[in-house]
């Protein structure tokens, strides 16, 4: 059974249809990277997966279970699926350490001392243990994003969603964030990643999905997509972004 299965998913904002008949599957331990031009619906699709956007039609199955009609227990589902945002969205009135340990303590009733230990370990993992007691606004974008990854990991998610995690970063800060993501992929984390980082897609992804105008245009192994795309639109997009 697939970890995540999306069937005929559609989404419209008023008259504007942003997702049309999306079908895709993510197996446990896979890293699936979604690429495509701006406005192709990649982020909306990702946000539908943890229901920050309400899908207009279709089905989303998580470990075989329909998640679109969970009602109040949607929060239990979200605990199992972490999300990392383009703009980090750290909690500004809390220190870095609090950002990471708040949810486990408040939502999972984790023991405070243990949660603290775990949070420090996670910060260590993303290379920011030394910054545990500062406030997010004193950090660079890249550092903030790594804290955001640690925060998502603190809930022990089974799958992580990344919504253009490096798009808001200065170019020299992108590398550190991608390093952390590679490390996670290496540890077998299931990841669904929307990104413009073609290098990352090529190197880390098990599968690459190309989206355009709300459709999944192509879905395949990275070497196939990048070297021998079947679809004309995929080819056009890749030649635009790769030969810049």
């Amino acid at each position: 059974m697939a970890m995540l299965e999306i069937k005929n998913l559609s989404k419209s904002f008023g008259d504007l249809q942003v997702l049309r008949d999306i079908n895709l599957c993510v197996e446990k331990g896979q890293v699936v990277v979604i690429i495509g031009p701006s406005g192709s619906g990649k982020s909306t699709m990702l946000r539908c997966v943890n229901l920050l956007e309400k899908p207009s039609g279709g089905e989303i199955l998580y470990q075989g279970e329909d998640i679109m009609h969970l009602g109040k227990s949607v929060k239990n589902y979200r605990k199992r699926v972490g999300m990392v945002f383009q703009r980090f969205n750290l909690f500004g009135l809390h220190t870095v350490l609090e950002n990471v340990m708040l949810a486990p303590v408040q939502l999972n009733k984790a023991d405070k001392t243990q949660a603290r230990e775990r949070a420090l370990d996670l910060l260590d993992k993303v290379g920011l243990k030394a910054k545990a007691d500062v406030y997010p606004h004193t950090l660079s974008g890249g550092q903030q994003q790594r804290v955001a990854i640690a925060r998502a990991l603190a809930m022990d998610p089974e799958m992580l969603l990344f919504d253009e995690p490096t798009s808001a970063l200065d170019p020299e800060l992108v590398g550190d964030v991608l390093e952390v993501m590679k490390k996670l992929a290496g540890e077998g984390m299931t990841m669904l990643v929307v990104t413009h980082e073609m290098g990352f897609a090529r190197e880390v992804a098990d599968r690459v999905i190309f989206m355009d105008e709300g459709y999944v245009v192509e879905d395949g192994a990275p070497e196939v997509i990048f070297t021998n795309p079947k679809n004309e639109r995929t080819r056009a997009f890749l030649s635009r972004v790769l030969h810049k």
């Binding site: 979200r78 972490g82 999300m83 969205n89 949810a103 408040q106 939502l107 925060r151 998502a152 809930m155």
Partner: peptide
């Protein structure tokens, strides 16, 4: 910033918890 609300929701907080914990302060 609506991102604060979304970050809280994505971690598994309820709308009400998010309001009192991350939006009102």
């Amino acid at each position: 910033n609506p991102g604060q609300r979304e970050a809280g929701l994505a971690l598994g907080y309820s709308e009400r918890q998010v309001l009192f914990q991350f939006v009102i302060p």
